[in-house]
């Protein structure tokens, strides 16, 4: 924009997969309580964190994400009983792929957020965004 000081700060693009039953409601809770957190994330609602196949996470990177956060119900709280356990298992594969491709494990994260934990959701997203900001753009371009 003309006349404005150009700040070179890198604004990462973060994709957050949130499960319908806990984490999405947790994000909603953060909003209702007007808790501030960085606007860098794009929220994708899925029915269960167990649905988030490693391919989804890689696809997000392919489409330009700099970091991907997968979020579901706490262990034992899953709406589908053990969906988050399979999310945990699948996430090992996701991490392996991130390591192998040179994306780095720090760019992917799995967290449990309940519907009541708006504060926790905001804190996780804030912290993750800063991690990615430090890690820099994935593809070497600074376009946002």
């Amino acid at each position: 924009m003309k006349g404005m000081a150009v700040t070179a700060r890198f604004e990462p693009r973060v994709v957050v997969f949130a499960c319908n039953w806990c984490s999405y409601a947790g994000a909603d809770n953060a909003g209702v309580n007007r808790i501030q957190y960085p606007p860098n994330s794009r929220l994708v609602r899925v029915m269960c964190s167990g649905r988030v196949h490693p391919a989804f996470v890689l696809r997000a990177f392919e489409l330009g994400a700099d970091g991907v956060l997968v979020s579901g119900c706490h262990i034992g709280d899953c709406h589908y009983l053990f969906g988050n356990e399979s999310a945990l298992k699948q996430f090992e594969t996701t991490k392996s792929f991130a390591r192998l491709l040179g994306i780095g494990e720090e760019r992917v994260r799995l967290e449990w957020v309940s519907a009541a934990e708006g504060e926790r959701f905001a804190r996780i997203v804030e912290e993750f965004t800063e991690t990615i900001r430090k890690a820099g753009p994935l593809a070497g371009s600074t376009a946002t």
């Binding site: 890689l58 990177f61 392919e62 792929f97 390591r99 192998l100 491709l101 040179g102 994306i103 780095g104 994935l138 593809a139 070497g140």
Partner: peptide
């Protein structure tokens, strides 16, 4: 993963 291998200009792991 293959398309990312083509695109990403960073060392693989």
């Amino acid at each position: 993963a293959m398309r990312l291998m083509a695109r990403l200009e960073r060392p693989t792991g």
